[in-house]
């Protein structure tokens, strides 16, 4: 059964067509890659899915719900989480608070409970804190729990971003260039981590990546964008040999 269905997704910036007639289905438990040269419209696709932009045309269905027109926070609470191309942590908040924020939509207490410090409030806060600490433990970040996020080394910040994304209990995880700025050893670690994430949290993963090694390593299917157009969709091996993909990446003279 497909978890995410994107049909005819099109988006204009002013007169510029950033994404044109993008179609894709993600089945439950799949790992799918989205690749393409710089400026091909990959991040725009993520922004459209998560409601940062409203698509000019097209439909996005997730888990039986129509996403177009919803606010980002509603989309996230339905079970989609994402990371960012450039790290966007809450830099002055502690690592623990960054992860606790992902639980925002799940906290089952209202403003009155918070202001009166009711028993419900205390139980829920404890539950959220425990869950957050559990996540930090899983990501090997426990010792930084009370440090502002900005004080973390780069690699840890990247890990924290994924941990924060997972805290909202997603079914679908969107990773925007998770390997950016990593060396080969770190990339190996990342690949292992993504495989582990998928099983541990029963995730469907949709990821944007530049580095072929990452994409070829873990993706079951790949979609290729160039200037907003989908030029190929298929298994990694097919993609690698597709002449149109080679052309987009390497220029015309190769083909």
């Amino acid at each position: 059964m497909s978890l995410l269905q994107i049909e005819g997704l099109t988006h204009f910036f002013g007169g510029l067509k950033a994404v044109s007639d993008f179609n894709l289905e993600l089945a439950n438990g799949e790992v799918v890659g989205l690749i393409g040269p710089n400026g091909a419209g990959k991040t725009t696709v993520f922004n459209l899915i998560t409601g940062v932009y409203k698509p000019s045309r097209g439909r996005i269905r997730f888990d039986g719900h129509d996403l177009v027109g919803l606010q980002s926070c509603q989309i996230i609470s339905m079970g989609i989480a994402r990371t960012f191309q450039t790290i966007r942590l809450f830099r002055d908040l502690t690592v623990l608070d960054n992860v606790r924020l992902g639980h925002f939509a799940q906290a089952r207490y209202g403003i009155r409970d918070a202001l009166m410090r009711s028993a419900k409030f205390r139980d829920e806060e404890k539950r959220i804190k425990d869950k957050a600490l559990e996540l930090l433990e899983a990501f090997n970040l426990t010792r930084y729990a009370y440090v502002p996020a900005k004080a973390l080394p780069y690699g840890e910040q990247r890990r924290l971003e994924i941990a924060r994304a997972l805290s909202s209990n997603p079914k679908l995880l969107l990773l925007d260039e998770p390997a950016a700025g990593m060396n080969p050893r770190e990339i190996d670690e990342l690949l292992e981590r993504i495989a582990w994430l998928k099983d541990e949290f029963h995730l469907t993963i949709f990821l944007i990546e530049h580095q072929m090694r990452v994409v070829m390593g873990i993706c079951e299917r790949i979609a290729v964008l160039d200037f907003g157009e989908t030029i190929a969709v298929g298994a990694p091996l097919e993609i690698q040999t597709d002449p149109r993909v080679l052309e987009a990446y390497l220029g015309k003279e190769v083909s």
Partner: peptide
């Protein structure tokens, strides 16, 4: 800190 990111971690801003 970052309103857009806040919305994208499920906060109803």
């Amino acid at each position: 800190e970052d309103e857009v990111a806040s919305n994208l971690v499920s906060v109803n801003t």
